[in-house]
Structure formats: structure tokens, C-alpha cells
Design a protein around this nucleic acid. Structure first.
Length: 211
DNA sequence: CAATAGATCATCT
DNA sequence: GATGATCTATTGC
């Protein structure tokens, strides 16, 4: 499928029908584990929203009270409410007056923790993504960043709190899992706990926000 | 190339 | 009233 084609090709890697056939929705038990584990294992999984889909190639873990960079460290507020609920829900927040960022809630109910999706490799619905992000010059720029991917896939705060084991936003795993190496490094764009090794990405993947 | 300013608003001080 | 889990266009070397 995708990997046979050159990265700079604007064609869909796979049709939506094929994709849905070759993947299955991740169960809630996948999310209700330690956040770091979930962040690592979300790599190579597929995010589907409407007719657009992309493979997750870069993530960051945000923990609880001890992690000053995490929104949850300030406690339960209207915005962070979903972080304290059960895993497998979307935490979408608005930042810099302009962009939305998508996180997936990890850990069982009562304990906060989430995984920021930082980049996806577009798989299908490329034409629609391009329409939503006309400034992207290369396919590699379409969803290589938390704000970019939300715009490309049409993800907004309207999806705050939705259950990603049900739709309309879902995360799926390939029935035949791909193999790759994982690179670990410090998280991007934060002040507190800036050197914690909580960023993960697929080694050599050209759709990562910054290698 | 690298550095920087501007866009723009929910959230918290 | 300041800040921020960003992106883009523009400026300057």
C-alpha cells in the first residue's frame, strides 16, 4: 500500500474501504494503561475522521500532577475534565488563538494522562486535506504538526470528549502491524519539564514534524 | 538557511 | 492582563 509509493506523491495511499477492511478499532483497554506505554504504541496506528485518515508517526506523553507541562497538573477544571475520565476519549484544546490540538486520554478513570498526536502520515482523503490546508507545498507538510493535522483532518473542539472507540473520530490498528524503530526525545514547544524524554516518533519517517 | 513577528482567544492570575 | 503542547510569512545573513 502506501509504502510502495514515493512520499511526495499526492495520491491516496489506500482507499477508505480498503483501509477500514485492513484495520480494526482499538479497544478501550488499549488506552487504560500507563500514558508512556500508550504514547509509544499509538505510533503506527491510524486516525480516521470522515473520509480522511492518517497513520500516527509522532506522539508526546503528558502526565499528571508531577508534569508541570501537562494541563492536568493544574487540577480538574472545565477544560481538563475529560483528562480525569476514562481512557479512549478525545481531549481537543484550542491554542494560540488559532489552532486546535488533539490528544487521546490514557490511564483508567480518576487518573489524568494523555497523548498529544503531533504528526500523521496522510493515507486517504488527501485531496480534502489539501483543500483544508492550501498553504502546504508538499505532502510532507500536510499534517506534520499538532495544529496542521487537526486542520487537515477537520478536527476541532467540537470533538472535545468524544469516545474514539465509537466514532466519528476513531483510532484503528492494522490487522498486519507494520514494523519500525522508535526514537525517543524531549517534548517540543514547552517550558516546564522540557528535558523529559516523552516524545516518540517513527525513525526515518518523512512525515514527522521535526526529526 | 535562521530568526522573528503576527495572528488571535480560552484559560488562568 | 499575560500566556501558550503553533504555523506562516517575512526579514536578514
Amino acid at each position: 500500500m502506501s509504502w510502495r509509493r514515493a512520499p511526495s506523491d499526492w495520491q491516496d495511499r489506500v482507499s477508505l474501504d480498503e483501509l477500514l477492511q485492513q484495520t480494526e478499532i482499538l479497544p478501550r483497554s488499549f488506552y487504560e494503561r500507563p500514558t508512556v506505554e500508550v504514547a509509544r504504541e499509538l505510533l503506527g496506528k491510524v486516525l480516521v475522521h470522515g473520509a480522511t485518515a492518517g497513520q500516527i508517526v509522532e506522539t508526546e506523553a503528558y502526565l499528571g500532577e508531577e508534569d508541570r507541562a501537562a494541563h492536568a497538573s493544574r487540577g480538574l477544571t472545565p477544560r481538563t475534565r475529560v483528562l480525569f475520565g476514562p481512557g479512549g476519549h478525545a481531549y481537543v484544546f484550542f491554542i494560540y488563538g488559532m489552532y486546535d490540538c488533539l490528544n487521546l486520554v490514557a490511564e483508567p478513570e480518576g487518573r489524568p494522562g494523555c497523548v498529544l498526536i503531533r504528526a500523521v502520515e496522510p493515507l486517504c482523503g488527501l485531496a480534502q486535506m489539501r483543500r483544508r490546508r492550501p498553504s502546504a507545498r508538499r505532502v510532507e507538510d500536510l499534517a506534520s504538526g499538532p495544529g496542521k493535522l487537526c486542520r487537515a483532518l477537520g478536527i476541532t473542539r467540537a470533538l472535545y470528549g468524544v469516545d474514539v472507540t465509537q466514532g466519528p473520530l476513531t483510532v484503528r490498528r492494522w490487522k498486519r502491524e507494520p514494523e519500525f524503530e522508535i526514537v525517543v526525545g524531549p517534548r517540543v514547544g514547552i517550558r516546564h519539564c522540557a528535558d523529559w524524554p516523552l516524545r516518540f516518533y517513527i525513525k526515518g519517517n518523512p512525515f514527522v514534524s521535526r526529526p
